[in-house]
Design a binder for these strands. Structure first.
Length: 878
RNA sequence: GGGCGGGUAGCUCAGUUGGGAGAGCAUCGGCCUUACAAGCCGAGGGUCACAGGUUCAAGCCCUGUUCCGCCUACCA
């Protein structure tokens, strides 16, 4: 029996524990009977806590996995966490700072030990939260990107790409975060426009008179200038090319060169070139063989090359330099200017383009294959509009900087020979130099970008590089479900790596869901203070209501806005389901559905109707889930549960409970409700299980492993369903009259029905109990089609029936007139539009015949209604 | 600069080959009808951003305008 009131706290933990105990979530690679369905989880940061994005993402995955598991698939959901290099290192460093210790105090090995300890202590948090949400991952397969197995995969891939020349080490301008003390990839830089200035600075010619004025947004970099460039076709400067200017303050002589990339229109048409601190400038320096001068250290502090500014922070230097330039007459102008500023996505520090030696992946050849895979539909990207974005990025892909100057991560498997300088890249530590046999080797201290290891996730988690049974069984995965924000970071890289090392795409579908925003559509962030905590939501409304809300929000390709109000609305929905369960259970005590054999002749019209509606819901829900139309699935189920099953069928079933066919009603009631719970289970696992376990006629021990509902063609009665709709229309008609003319609900009415055919009269006669109970009617009198209409009645017209409610002594005549006036006006309007359409020759000639036919039918219906309404109105007067 | 998405009821949003404008919440009126007042019954409310075009027919397709949001970019 169910508790009187639904309380999520009573049931969620209980069932999750049971599911784990029964090992339902485990997918067996030796099971050869079932078709396979697999998903790998986007691994959350090991130090992270569950946020709304995770909640949405994992709810959507869980829905697919539970659906497929119930539907007979060998369904694997591979779980795990990501070591999140920079993020985790930052967290642990902050923790240590609280104790007054820096990572340098500890040293590399001790610090890494500290991070592992941190992970032991806090790494399980988010996993527990996923369980709270109901995630049905195969937990015994839990992986971590720093596990020995996955680390082996990383080394193998690195060495293999290096041997092929697809990984190389080179000096290049990278995005340097002076706070993280590391290079980061292009993707990890966030661009923002900020108010700043454009400085115009005078560079005097070295010999004789004259000067060149350059414009810059970063004046401090002039300390590292090694030339001034102009466009070769710029006549203003033709004579100056080849001459030298003197760099103010530092008094270095630098040449004026001509280069085609210089924009004549911008500023003065002359640009200062700082090869060590700007990508364009660096590339230009290669073309012209220029000197390269690094003027800052790794913390963004000016170094000895900055002369008098040595030791000052880069922004302090900018200010001081400006003052000095002005005092010495070099500053020509300073105008307000919007500049794009790159910031570290982790710590928001301003990124410094910085010349350093880094490791890169040559991505072009990998990207080509990844593009082809999507073009050939071996992988589908959904919603489709993201395909273009994917192509765009892949086509313009730049080499990927994979080295990070931090400690927490996969250490790059490269060693340098201290004697001969040879670089040895190897999966295992080499004993001696491959070139000179020296044992004097030093390992690379850099670690790899975290995304390098996540890029291998779909196969490294399954045991690669060993050719495991899991790989054979579950690779490629069916779908990757993730947020669009990591399409490049992660999805693109998995595509490249999967194709390269497995020879096959990592997933058949990529479903990209939207980002979760707050009610105002703002991105959630700690600084804005608009974070909605999923755990709070679950505490307040229960995991099921929360999941259902997320599912209903997840319209394809749209932002997801969380609204407390809506989540609460779905909490009420769960409550509705619960109460319906109480109703069902209280009416089937001692009833055994298996004792009955169901045949159509035993079923009432209402039974046939609800069974037909159920089939439709099964069809719609399945196709919605198959196509990742989550909100459609949720909406369909919501509509059917509340407004079809509860509002109508349960009410219809009440009077049937006392009839002789009551057992069949009980059967249908139980069957429909049980099926409904099964349809809902992937979305609301806990409450569906709780109620389902109380129902009779179960054939498995848990809803988790019961067959997902299939359309039952033997219990499909579309014609009967239409008849039932007619009856419902009569009920609605009476209710509408009641509502609008202020008839007291306690007043039981007599009505007169005028029907089109004797068949209809028989049908209504047979099921008049429905009308009597649901519309609160006592006497029903039928009159024939040709008979005179009763006077002084309110009228409701349906497509098949005219419903007369005698007014005298019952209702307000004027109210009814008003009501009819409104109806007449509306019907007239509809009719006019319809008529116009049907008088249009073009329509009759060109529209599809079935469309025309339909329009004619609708027009006739409107004609019929209007005529009745007008007559009723006239009769009111009499 | 390039690309993408959006502007539909007071609010938040659905609307799948072009063919009767929808939901939830809010609002108004009436109900303790024995599963549920976290509920039931009834009702009101929209020139589908704007302007053109294609079509017999446009919220939906095309063009332009405008306003928002996001992604991307080496114009100092």
């Amino acid at each position: 029996m169910l508790h009187r009131e639904y309380d999520p706290k009573d049931i969620e933990q209980k069932w999750y524990d049971m599911w784990l105990k029964k090992n339902y979530f485990h997918a067996d690679e030796d099971d050869s009977d079932k078709p396979t369905y697999s998903i790998v989880i986007p691994p959350p940061n090991v130090t992270g806590v569950l946020h709304m994005g995770h909640a949405l993402n994992n709810t959507l995955q869980d829905i697919m996995i539970r659906y497929k598991r119930m539907d007979g698939y060998n369904a694997l959901w591979m779980p795990g966490t990501d070591h999140a290099g920079i993020a985790t290192q930052n967290v642990v460093e902050k923790y240590l700072a609280g104790k007054g210790v820096s990572r340098h105090d500890l040293g590399r090995d001790a610090f890494i030990d500290e991070v592992w300890r941190w992970r032991e202590k806090h790494g399980g948090l988010i996993i527990g939260q996923l369980k709270r949400l109901g995630a049905s991952c195969d937990w015994e397969r839990m992986r971590f990107t720093m596990d020995e197995g996955l680390s082996r995969a990383v080394r193998k891939v690195f060495v293999s790409l290096y041997d092929e020349g697809l990984i190389y080490r080179s000096d290049y301008i990278v995005n340097w975060c002076p706070r993280c003390h590391s290079a980061i990839s292009d993707l990890e830089v966030e661009h923002e426009e900020e108010d700043s200035f454009l400085w115009h600075i005078r560079y005097p010619l070295a010999d004789g008179d004259g000067e060149v004025v350059v414009a810059t947004t970063r004046p401090e970099t002039m300390l590292g200038d090694t030339c001034v460039a102009v466009n070769p076709s710029d006549e203003r400067y033709t004579d100056l090319v080849g001459k030298e200017v003197v760099l103010p303050i530092v008094n270095r002589r630098i040449p004026i060169v001509a280069d085609y990339v210089v924009d004549k229109e911008f500023g003065t048409g002359a640009v200062k070139i700082t090869p060590a601190h700007d990508l364009n400038d660096y590339e230009m320096s290669l073309r012209h063989g220029l000197e390269v001068i690094v003027i800052m250290d790794e913390s963004g502090i000016m170094n000895e090359n900055a002369g008098p500014y040595k030791g000052r922070d880069r922004f302090v230097c900018r200010k001081d330099l400006e003052t000095d330039l002005e005092e010495q007459g070099y500053l020509v102008d300073r105008t307000p200017y919007r500049v794009p500023v790159g910031k570290c996505y982790r710590c928001k520090s301003v990124i410094e383009p910085y010349l350093s030696k880094q490791w890169f992946v040559r991505t072009k050849p990998l990207a080509e294959e990844a593009i082809k895979a999507v073009q050939e539909s071996r992988t589908r990207i959904l919603p489709k509009q993201w395909e273009k974005t994917y192509y765009e990025w892949m086509n313009n892909i730049r080499d990927w900087c994979i080295s990070r100057q931090i400690w927490w991560g996969h250490r790059i498997p490269a060693w340098y020979c201290e004697d001969c300088g040879e670089v040895i890249v190897s999966e295992t530590e080499p004993g001696a130099c491959s070139s000179c046999s020296s044992a004097n080797l030093r390992q690379e201290t850099d670690v790899l970008d975290t995304w390098f290891s996540s890029g291998l996730w779909p196969f490294s988690t399954m045991g690669w590089p060993d050719n495991t049974k899991a790989l054979q069984k579950f690779y490629p995965t069916a779908v990757l479900i993730t947020g669009f924000d990591i399409l490049f970071f992660w999805v693109a890289r998995m595509m490249m790596m999967g194709i390269k090392f497995m020879g096959d795409v990592p997933f058949g579908d990529v479903y990209l869901h939207a980002l979760v925003r707050d009610e105002q559509g703002q991105k959630m962030s700690k600084s804005k203070g608009n974070i909605v905590d999923p755990i709070d939501e679950m505490d307040q409304y229960g995991a099921d209501a929360f999941r259902f809300a997320l599912t209903a929000f997840a319209a394809m390709g749209r932002d997801v806005r969380v609204s407390d109000k809506r989540i609460q609305g779905y909490r009420f929905f769960i409550n509705k389901i619960w109460n319906a369960g109480k109703f069902v259970l209280s009416n089937i005590e001692g009833f055994d559905p298996k004792s009955l054999s169901i045949s159509p002749d035993k079923l009432s019209l209402a039974d046939k109707w609800i069974l037909t509606e159920l089939n439709k819901t099964i069809r719609d829900t399945r196709s919605a889930l198959d196509e990742y139309r989550y909100n459609d699935a949720a909406d369909n189920l919501y509509q059917f549960t509340w407004h079809t099953f509860c509002d109508w069928y349960i009410e219809l079933s009440k009077p049937m409970m006392n009839e002789e066919n009551a057992p069949y009603t009980r059967w249908v009631l139980t069957h429909v409700y049980k099926t409904l719970l099964e349809l809902l289970h992937p979305i609301i696992p806990f409450v569906s299980e709780e109620i389902w376990q109380n129902l009779p006629g179960r054939t498995s021990e848990s809803i988790v492993v019961t067959q997902y509902p299939q359309v039952n063609h033997e219990l499909d009665f579309p014609d009967d369903a239409r008849m039932m709709e007619c009856l419902n229309d009569v009920i609605s008609g009476v209710r509408s009259i009641r509502g609008e003319t202020n008839i007291a609900p306690s007043l039981v009415l007599d009505i007169v029905l005028k029907v089109k055919s004797p068949d209809m009269e028989t049908l209504i006669g047979t099921y008049s109990v429905f009308i009597r109970e649901l519309a609160r009617v006592k006497g029903i009198v039928f009159i024939a089609e040709g008979a005179p209409r009763p006077r002084k009645c309110a009228l409701a017209v349906t497509s098949e029936v005219e419903v007369y409610v005698p007014l005298e002594g019952v209702i307000d005549l004027d109210k009814e007139k008003e009501r009819l006036d409104k109806l007449i006006a509306k019907t007239r309007k509809d009719l006019e539009a319809k008529q116009k359409k049907l008088e249009n020759k073009g329509f009759l000639e060109k529209a599809k015949p079935e469309i025309v036919e339909e329009q004619v039918r609708l027009k006739e219906e409107l004609d019929f209604m209007l005529e009745r309404l007008l007559k009723a109105h006239a009769l009111l007067e009499g």
